[in-house]
Design a binder for these strands. Structure first.
Length: 419
RNA sequence: GGUGGCGUGUCCGAGUGGCCUAAGGAGCACGCCUCGAAAGCGUGUGAGGGUUAACGCCCUCCGUGGGUUCAAAUCCCACCGCCACCGCCA
């Protein structure tokens, strides 16, 4: 959530942020209206409550000395009724206020490019693109032939958008996971295996129950959620804590579950868009001041991982109209997919500022006052899409697939995947 | 899933309706003492919110949420978590 003080002091800043996101600036005025009402009710409630406490002490004193307390108690009764009534007014006002606050998306970073979905700003391009669109065999064809991927049986067992990785495909996932873990941990990220089933507050706190709610699996019997990314568990890990030293950096492995509602008919072939996959995710808690630099650090590690895999990719700056609710700014790396003849997202690094930390109550010890931390996340490896990229970009003339040298130590030293 | 026990501040721990405005201890910080340190003595020591130009003042927080009462850490209900044992299970 946004700092209420910013909304009071500089509402235009928030209105402008909402506007460039393509969201409703009027929420700001709703908030201000409810906030004023709440503060008024709150002050009145506090005043009466103070009177009630004083009275309570007087009643106690009267009972001890044997004096008549009946008039005091009568006054107390009237006060109690009034407090009940005022308490309800106050609580209603607070609920309305918080509702408006929760509905507001994070402030965008000043440098984030203005624009709507699809208007990506390309920051850089790396590696050599393989021609082939249409003529180039796709990952399903290659993977099936080499016995590393089985989408037909995935569909038989679990439905569309499920798959089996088999043989060297299964080992390839483990190699990628270990490789990514190793690179990230060499940059100070602590490896974590995180729960992928979480309680509602974790989902709410990371901002996934707002506009993204339709893509989340919910287990109604237990009121728990299957996470779409380990970001959820990693962020909530330190909820309700006051941290000592920051930054804290984690690299977490977890399965990820996505309903993919609203994407019917998109990427229906293969494992580009699936309901379940495994991912290695980086997550940092920093001071608010250090967040922009940390964002670059995370992006740098993502690039190091892709460079090591010898994949052609580009880095894009996501326009404000396409940012998630929690993100101030987002950089994606998009890898070249020869069979599609286009770049597709494989990593995504977001700076969430203190937006998630406010919801999850994650602070750090600081001088005059403790302050909320900034949270940042970025993909180290999203397994299926990287497998697509490797199968297609490293396809050799003999039909086998080359294994980039950086990955070989994690892949039994093998230099290629062969049938 | 069953039975029993437990949940108080940074930690330990007292507290069974009203000076709890939470005892006491430990830890920590500062001061005194000391050549210096330890010990001892003294003072201070949480989080959030409202209000104020500021000093300050007020409110909330004893696992969470309800309830009873003029008044709740304390009584009642529900839930959550932890521990032990039993059952089941990888």
């Amino acid at each position: 959530m946004i700092d209420p003080q910013i909304l009071r002091d500089d509402p235009d800043l928030v209105r402008e942020s909402q506007r460039v996101r393509g969201e409703d600036p009027a929420l700001v005025d709703q908030f201000l209206q409810y906030d004023t009402a709440w503060r008024k009710a709150n002050a009145e409630f506090d005043r009466l409550r103070s009177e009630q406490k004083t009275l309570g002490r007087e009643v106690g004193e009267a009972k001890r000395t044997g004096a008549d307390a009946s008039s005091l108690m009568a006054r107390g009764e009237a006060l109690a009724d009034e407090l009940t009534r005022l308490g309800e007014v106050r609580d209603q006002a607070l609920i309305a206020r918080d509702g408006a606050l929760l509905a507001l998306s994070n402030l965008v970073e000043p440098d984030a490019p203005r624009g709507v979905e699809g208007e990506v700003k390309v920051l850089s391009e790396h590696g050599t693109v393989v021609a082939g669109h249409g003529a180039h065999p796709d990952h399903v064809e290659i993977g099936t032939r080499l016995g590393v991927l089985d989408v037909e049986r995935g569909a038989k067992v679990s439905g569309s958008r499920f798959y089996f990785l088999t043989g060297q495909g299964a080992l390839l996932e483990l190699a990628l996971v270990n490789y990514a873990m190793q690179v990230a941990s060499s940059h100070g990220f602590t490896p974590v295996i995180a729960p992928s089933l979480v309680r509602p507050f974790a989902m709410e706190g990371t901002g996934f129950l707002g506009q993204a709610a339709e893509n989340v699996y919910h287990l109604a019997d237990d009121d728990m959620y299957l996470v779409g990314t380990s970001e959820v568990a990693l962020a909530a890990m330190h909820s309700d804590e006051i941290l000592g030293e920051v930054p804290l950096r984690y690299v977490g492995f977890s399965p990820c579950f996505r309903r993919e509602a609203g994407s019917h008919g998109k990427d229906t072939r293969g494992i580009m868009r699936v309901h379940w996959f495994d991912k290695v995710e980086m997550f940092s808690f920093t001071s608010v001041d250090a967040a922009v630099a940390e964002h670059q650090k995370i992006l740098g590690i993502e690039r190091e991982i892709l460079d090591g895999l010898e994949l052609p990719y580009r880095v894009v700056d996501i326009p404000t109209g396409d940012l998630g609710a929690s993100a101030r700014r987002k950089f994606d790396c998009e890898v070249w997919v020869p069979s599609l003849g286009e770049y597709r997202e494989v990593t995504s690094a977001s700076n969430c500022g203190d937006f998630q930390a406010r919801r999850l109550k994650i602070r750090r010890a600081a001088k005059p006052d403790n302050e909320f931390v900034a949270t940042l996340n970025g993909t180290a490896i999203a397994v299926p899409r990287i497998i697509i990229a490797i199968l297609e970009n490293h396809l050799q003339a003999d039909g086998n697939v080359g294994v980039p040298s950086a990955l070989r130590p994690f892949f039994g030293g093998r230099s290629q995947i062969a049938a």
